[in-house]
Amino acid sequence: MYVFLCENSIEGIFTGVYDAWASRYGHRNIRLSLDTPDTYELFCEYIQVTPDLEKSRRIGRAICSSFGYEVYQDICQAIMAAGKEKKKALDKADCVYRTILLGFAMHDGHRVLTALGEPYVARVFELARTTNLEAHHLMGFLRFRELENGVLFSAIHPKNDVLPILGEHFTDRLPQEHFMIYDATHKTAAVHKAGSPFFIADVTDLNEALIQNVSAEELEYRRLWCAFFESIAIKARQNPKLQSQNIPKRFWQDTVELC
């Protein structure tokens, strides 16, 4: 058995898929794994994969042209998921590899993600759905604050790497605003300058003083929003359990009205 150890990123896993394929060891003898195992298995050869942009691009292109853009998107979203909720769950990288293999073996690769009877496809599908769901939640629950220099700033604590999805959504929504979404879990930020596309940057030291320095009207609009939020609730229908079911508690810290 040959085990390819990949980095946990789209580039890392796609490079792993490329290397595994190109190695010609036979798919049955290959496994992809995300992190270095605690105990090494006997009769296994471990191969470290170095992420390579060119290789990962080629895999990306192959998926796009053979399976269609939607499948490509779903696979990327599956990779963006943290996927650590269960200890015994199937390995993310290996599931992606097996799914791609199945897609190429199928007559119509566009339908690969509907083969939910296969455990690894079901896993990729499940992971893609987690990312998608959290991104959709945050499209609603994320709050911007206006800083003194007019920039909109927002901090979030997502489990999965949803920043690319959010960046795209808000660039389309607020094209004429400067904004920055800071992902405190992954220490990255989506930065957008008015009238241009967004980009994702690593953030090591965030200027805390600068982001606390909000504009003059900001507090007034926060007060108005909280007042609206209070008065829109119907007292006779009070149901806090339903509320925390709909907006899970972990999102509360980043909102204006609930924190």
Binding site: F229, A233, I234, I247, L258
Partner: peptide
């Protein structure tokens, strides 16, 4: 699909 932005204390969506 629409987006819910908040949920008031009666559990209804505020969008």
């Amino acid at each position: 699909p629409g987006i819910c932005h908040a949920f008031s204390s009666d559990g209804r969506c505020v969008s």
